[in-house]
Design a protein around this nucleic acid. Sequence first.
DNA 1: ATCACTTACGAGCTGCGTAAGAATT
DNA 2: AATTCTTACGCAGCTCGTAAGTGAT
Lengths: 321, 321
Amino acid sequence: MTLNQLRTLLAIADAELNISLAAARLNATQPALSRQLRQIEEELGFQVFVRHGKSLAQITRAGGEVLARARAVLGEVRNIEALAANHRRETRGTLRVATTQALGRFVLPAALGRLRARFGAVQLRLRPGGGEECLDLLERDEIDLALVSTEGERPAGDVALPLFRWNRALVALPGHPLAGGNAPLSLTQIAQYPLIAADTATQADFKMGRAFREAGIEPNIACTARDADTIKTFVRLDLGIGIVAEMALTPEDEDLVRLPAAHVFPGCITWAILRSDRIQRDYVFELLRELAPTLSREEIDRVIHGERGLDLTSRIAHWAA
Amino acid sequence: MTLNQLRTLLAIADAELNISLAAARLNATQPALSRQLRQIEEELGFQVFVRHGKSLAQITRAGGEVLARARAVLGEVRNIEALAANHRRETRGTLRVATTQALGRFVLPAALGRLRARFGAVQLRLRPGGGEECLDLLERDEIDLALVSTEGERPAGDVALPLFRWNRALVALPGHPLAGGNAPLSLTQIAQYPLIAADTATQADFKMGRAFREAGIEPNIACTARDADTIKTFVRLDLGIGIVAEMALTPEDEDLVRLPAAHVFPGCITWAILRSDRIQRDYVFELLRELAPTLSREEIDRVIHGERGLDLTSRIAHWAA
DNA sequence: ATCACTTACGAGCTGCGTAAGAATT
DNA sequence: AATTCTTACGCAGCTCGTAAGTGAT
């Protein structure tokens, strides 16, 4: 059994049993993979994939177990490689991050810019997605790090490091009826006008929506959008008041009026989720420190190295640009 | 990085940094291992072993981490091999058991004999040792299975399966003053005569010794021995009453008188200890079933596959030849 | 007819063991 | 002097890619 044979098995499984596709992904030829597959199946003594004629149809029961173990093997091999790269102060590498839109668009760029100073040659693979999607990618070991936000609660995942707190903000055109006053707005006042919110805001488990529901108020959601940029565009078209993460308001948005909303919507926390069974490259730690400057290296280490009970939510600060 | 390179690293580390010895154990030549070592160190970018002149002196800090991960990799590879061997109903294989003397001498042979019927070609590697030694060997992944006895309590180890209960028995020559009566013996009566016990009986944490101590009685331990055979020999020389595990009394010992001792000494339980991170060959399950006939395959499975809280001590029976 | 896997073949690389060399103890 | 690791060399085996073959849709 060789590592390449195991890599072949996983590549084929991950390419939906298409050997040619798997070969292309591994920068190899298709006959090479066919041979590797034949050899490992010979050694195992049974087929990993069920053949339908000349193509592969499905994974055998025993094959599935082998694949799971093969993932563990290659994961540990990657751990050794990460370990070694850290030790020799390697600055090259890949950083695979899955994150929600607001974080990827408004928070990560600055942090990654600072990261570039020390790790110039890191290839970033940024994958946008919803919170659950990001955690799924982590589960499938396709990313190193998931960045997700919650309305306070600890997200799933075996290593969850809180990074910073943030609130939602309302944005309106300067001419909007609510834009002038200085007094804090009530839910009732807000609900009198059309609102523009994120797609996720309509989900039942979202506490923001619950804030309205519990107050017995039916908000008037004029439209929803997938990203904060779109929301701001709609606000500029005078379609309503926008509800966005405060990080989404940049100096370029000075044409809009920002209305505080921390008192009506629940506070949010952004978390970094990692796998406890993977050794992280140093630049992952560096990125985490960029994102959570109030945490000490030691606190981050303790969480990442599996201290489950440790609650650092009281140690993190509010987000600052 | 190849599996052979990792195997080389571990072999050298396990051979106390003697490359020649490691090569012999791997059935390879010494230059081959030197080359493998040079190559992996080149790839890692740092030395795994500190050189003192031309020989290896110690393991570097980073090297130690690599070695630990390499063990994980090769352990998972062994898992795949076990998985495959089970699936193709392979009857050959190796069974590495560490066990205390009484179990290895009086209990295992019969069970292994029955095992031979289904798995004729299994190579047995039996390593005798004290209870702690056996657990250490398991910790170091040098055995598949440790068989140890306790005075009731669950031993250390992440998978501990209770197998059967047993009691100690007293053996005496037919002419001995205590050998005639039918009434159960008291500790006081026993302590009036020289005793022959196992080495372990003198250890402070042994409840058997505590039974005497708590009764305020100082037993007269005439001599101690490492194994039950020796104890019986001493009994035959009329040096005293022997205290042995009941399993150690065979039909061949009919020249000796057996005196029940269950009422004065604590009852014992024999456990199988396994690693939760290793896939076991089918014959390991088979051996466990031989040793614990009252447990169902499903109960054994549940304990082995990591159900930590499950307490099967109420499900096991008293030992029967 | 096209797509996908298999088989055949020749080239290049890798890894081994033998043998000789060098540095410690 | 003995031990142990390193270097050099030549051979064997492995794995690759190209190209042709085969079966299925």
